[in-house]
Simulated assay, not measured.
Amino acid sequence: MNDTILIVDDDRAIAGLIEIYLVNEGYEVVKAFDGAEALERLARKDIRLVILDVMMPGLDGLEVCRQIRADQTVPILMLSAKAEDMDKIMGLMTGADDYLTKPFNPLELLARVRSLIRRAYGLNPKANRGRGADIMTFDGLEIDKGTHSVTMDGKPVHLTSIEFGILHMLASQPGRVFSAEAIYERVWNEPYSPTFTTVMVHISKLRDKLEKDSGQKWIHTVWGVGYKFDR
């Protein structure tokens, strides 16, 4: 069964254009033209990725993203005509996995869709289940690569695929400092962007989720160098 992608954009022409490219790549497509309709589609169908426009009347993309993130980790690629760093930071802080500025190159859109889906669903949980080497534990924090899951004192910590990728990378080598460039190129699997805000924002969200209940700081900033995981 092909992956189903939800396109959310009040501009029907843009939604239709994106649909053509995705269908040609073999994806199934569901469309919604406002925020409320998008949430309804998500509740009724198994959606593997959401392409979400920011500027919509009524329930805008940021609010839709917040509501999705309240109980789902489905990958979200946010689209916006706003290119300022602050707009990108707002989108990422709200819970988006990636951010693409309009007008965009359709080939770049497809590349980002493939990358997000691969990161989120590329692992086969059943094939890896029970393999001890896939599980790392640190004082109540358990990171399971096989099932792409994280628990803190037995309670699940809901991470997006990007957040999990960053955490797994840092925790695999405790104490080692990774630059923002190294993190981006290994987790996003594409050349580093000149701006570092994407990595910074995802690190911030990841820290909030890990430290919310435990009160323990796991990810540390080494100023001018990068980030490291310490027990």
Rank of each mutant, 00 (worst) to 15 (best):
A120R: 06
D10N: 13
K31P: 01
R112K: 12
I7N: 08
H168D: 15
T4P: 00
L77Q: 12
F104H: 13
D87C: 01
L22W: 07
V8Q: 11
F138P: 01
V8R: 12
G154C: 06
K145W: 09
V157W: 01
C65M: 09
D11T: 02
M56L: 02
C65L: 07
M56Y: 03
T101F: 01
L110Q: 11
L42V: 04
W218M: 03
T94E: 12
G165P: 08
L52N: 08
K88Y: 00
E25W: 07
V150P: 05
D153M: 02
I68N: 07
G16Q: 09
A96Q: 12
A13K: 12
D71V: 03
W188G: 09
M78W: 06
D97Y: 01
M86D: 14
D9K: 05
G61L: 05
I7L: 11
E163I: 00
W223K: 14
R118T: 06
M200C: 09
A111T: 10
R12N: 01
I20V: 10
P194A: 00
L116S: 09
D208C: 03
V8A: 04
V23S: 09
K82Q: 12
G58F: 03
R129V: 02
T221P: 04
L92T: 12
K212S: 09
F196S: 12
N124C: 04
E163G: 12
K126I: 06
I47C: 07
A83M: 05
H168F: 00
P191A: 05
L159C: 08
G132F: 07
P125N: 09
T4C: 10
M136Q: 15
R176P: 01
L167P: 04
Y192I: 01
P191K: 10
L6G: 03
G91V: 00
E190N: 10
I20S: 10
I68T: 06
A43G: 15
T73E: 06
A127N: 12
I183C: 12
I203M: 14
A96G: 14
M90C: 06
T101H: 11
L42H: 05
R186Q: 14
V64N: 10
G140N: 11
W223H: 13
W188E: 13
G61H: 10
R119V: 00
M56D: 04
L49P: 04
V187S: 15
K212V: 00
D153N: 14
G132S: 12
G224R: 12
L109H: 13
T221G: 10
I7Y: 09
L17T: 13
R186H: 08
M1K: 00
I219A: 15
L17N: 10
P106I: 03
T221A: 15
T147W: 10
N189G: 04
M152F: 01
V225C: 05
Q216V: 03
L22Q: 08
D97I: 01
D85N: 10
K45D: 14
L210S: 09
K126F: 06
L92E: 13
V113R: 09
E63F: 03
I5P: 04
G175N: 12
P75V: 02
T221Q: 14
K205M: 03
H168W: 02
D71H: 14
P57R: 10
D153H: 08
E28M: 03
K217Q: 14
E25M: 02
P75N: 11
A13C: 02
G175T: 07
T160H: 13
R119D: 05
A70G: 03
H220P: 02
A180K: 11
L116M: 11
L107Y: 13
M93K: 15
D230R: 01
S115D: 08
K205W: 00
